[in-house]
Amino acid sequence: MALLKVEDISISFGGLRAVSGFNLELKPGELVGLIGPNGAGKTTVFNILTGFYQPQEGRVIFDGKDITGLGCHKINRLGIGRTFQNIRLFNELTVLDNVKIAYQYAGRYSWRHTIFRTGSYRRSEKEIADWALSRLEIFNLDGKAGEIAKNLPYGEQRRLEIARALAGRPKLLLLDEPAAGMNPQETMELLELIKWLRKEFSLTIFLIEHDMSLVMKLCERILVLDYGMTIAEGSPEEIRNNPRVIEAYLGEEVS
């Protein structure tokens, strides 16, 4: 059974048809890439999947449940985590607090426990802190737990964002240009990290990326979006040789 099934979703902003008739099926454990020229509607697809936008047509079915029109915090709880194209960390907070916030679901205490600071409040808080720290360790950020997030170097901010998204226990992880602004070495490290994460957490990953070398090496299947429509779908090899894809990226051949 497919983990995520997207049926014919469309959305328009004013007169602009940002996404039209987008279809997608993700099997558990798959690693699929979404590419396309700037303004093709890639991030809009992500925003629809995570509930930031409501599609005007079509349905999104996740894990057997119709999630079309659900609020984005509900969709997150159901198991879709995401990162953002232009990193959205809680900038003024520490690295540790950034991850702790993602453990909202883990707070096993009620208001009474909050106000009176009972034992279960303290145990639960300790648990959250421990989990958050171990999560940071995986991403090699535990040494910077006390630093303010905005002071981290760019590559580490990207890693922290992934760590934070993973803290929410997602089944499906959406990565919006995870390698943007990274140097080749950092990109290679990211590649290894994504591969490892997928195995370790048995994740399904759907990612947008402009760095073709990363996409081609990482993804098993690639979708190409242009003007809101899927123009090609297939293995990296097929995509590389697809004339419509080449046209979309480089323009039509002059005859």
Partner: peptide, 17 residues
């Protein structure tokens, strides 16, 4: 923490559930 997250970045807070 949820309240502080809203102060810092409402959209990211939503995305964190």
């Amino acid at each position: 923490r949820a309240m502080v997250a809203i102060r810092e970045d409402e959209i990211a807070a939503e995305a964190m559930g």
